[in-house]
């Protein structure tokens, strides 16, 4: 057999080799084939459903027949901005998301500082696992656990009793507290990683130049960890903004955007769609704001 015949060859292996060679020579084709499936997924299932949501927000519902009328109108968005209840609920939802994020930062920083820099190095992986374990439990189980903790005569009441206080009961504070608990690992983890990767010699250099520990913390540690805090806040903020189950279980009568969407789905689908657009827009704005801190490159 000649060399040419060997390389050209026949059978499936030779065909595979020819295909590999052809792809090697056409990097654009290779890229297109690689990206086709995920792009299709993104375009059709995600962006597609989002645009259907957005389009249907411009339709209206016939109040007698409860049928969707496919006539263009901006009434729903108009109602969003003018109806006091909607404005209140939107403001409350953003407030809850911000409060949860702020609480997560305040709690996560010392925890991450301990797990990344104070604890003995061989304990650190175990501590990280310990922080992650709540994520293995079901969301509902955790929220119901908090319902038990916060219920009248529950753990919170019992523990605060000696101080002459009682627990927060069910309501907005309870929802914020529970959401903080739920999303805390998403904040601790990036902050832990950033602190663990902080080079020791930067801290040495700061001290060497005359900075006391507090100064080093403020001028070196915090600015260098900030992008990761912002990255974590993207999780805590968007997860809180989209939540409607926790608030149903521990929030008492409190309503967030998610609850309004949920209750409108049966009655007025276009209004639900308009309400659903709000968190999407808010999160896009939040992402744009966070991009300036360099957070997106540290996710």
């Amino acid at each position: 057999m000649t060399v040419a015949a060997q390389t050209a060859g026949q059978g499936p292996r030779a065909a595979a080799r020819r295909l590999a060679g052809a792809l090697h020579r056409r990097p654009r084709l290779r890229l297109a084939l690689l990206l086709a499936a995920p792009l299709l997924w993104l375009a059709v299932l995600y962006l597609g459903s989002l645009s259907v949501l957005f389009v249907s927000a411009f339709w209206t519902t016939d109040s007698f027949t409860s049928q969707v009328v496919k006539v263009w109108s901006a009434d729903n968005f108009h109602a969003l901005f003018t109806t006091p209840v909607y404005r209140q609920v939107i403001g409350r939802s953003i407030g809850v998301a911000l409060a949860v994020t702020a609480l997560c930062v305040v709690i996560a920083f010392p925890v991450a500082f301990y797990t990344a820099r104070v604890a003995r190095p061989r304990w650190r992986p175990l501590l990280v696992v310990a922080i992650l374990t709540p994520l293995w439990a079901s969301y509902l189980v955790k929220v119901y656990a908090w319902r038990l903790i916060l219920s009248q005569g529950g753990l919170a009441d019992w523990m605060l009793k000696p101080l002459g206080l009682s627990g927060p009961g069910f309501g907005l504070p309870a929802a914020v507290l529970t959401l903080t608990y739920l999303w805390l690992p998403y904040m601790i983890l990036p902050v832990h990683t950033a602190l663990a990767q902080l080079p020791d010699n930067l801290l040495d250099a700061s001290a060497d130049l005359g900075a006391r520990p507090g100064r080093t913390f403020g001028s070196v540690v915090v600015p260098m960890v900030l992008p990761s805090v912002a990255a974590g806040s993207i999780f805590t903020f968007s997860l809180s903004l989209g939540d409607y189950i926790t608030v149903q279980i521990v929030g008492g009568k409190t309503q967030l955007i998610g609850n309004l969407v949920y209750s409108n789905i049966e009655l007025d689908l276009p209004m639900a769609a308009a309400l659903g657009t709000v968190p999407v827009v808010v999160i896009v704005l939040y992402l744009l704001a966070m991009r300036r801190t360099g957070a997106l490159s540290s996710i």
Binding site: P199, N201, L202, D204, A205, S206, A207, D208, L209, G210, A211, R212, R215, S219, V220, P223, M224
Partner: peptide, 30 residues
Amino acid sequence: FERDVHTVFQDYALFPHMTVEQNVAYGLKV
């Protein structure tokens, strides 16, 4: 920070979040 000594580190240890000028002025600012 209580010693009148400054160090040039093997891998420089420049603060990545500061400009060159801010790096140089850091000790003075402190």
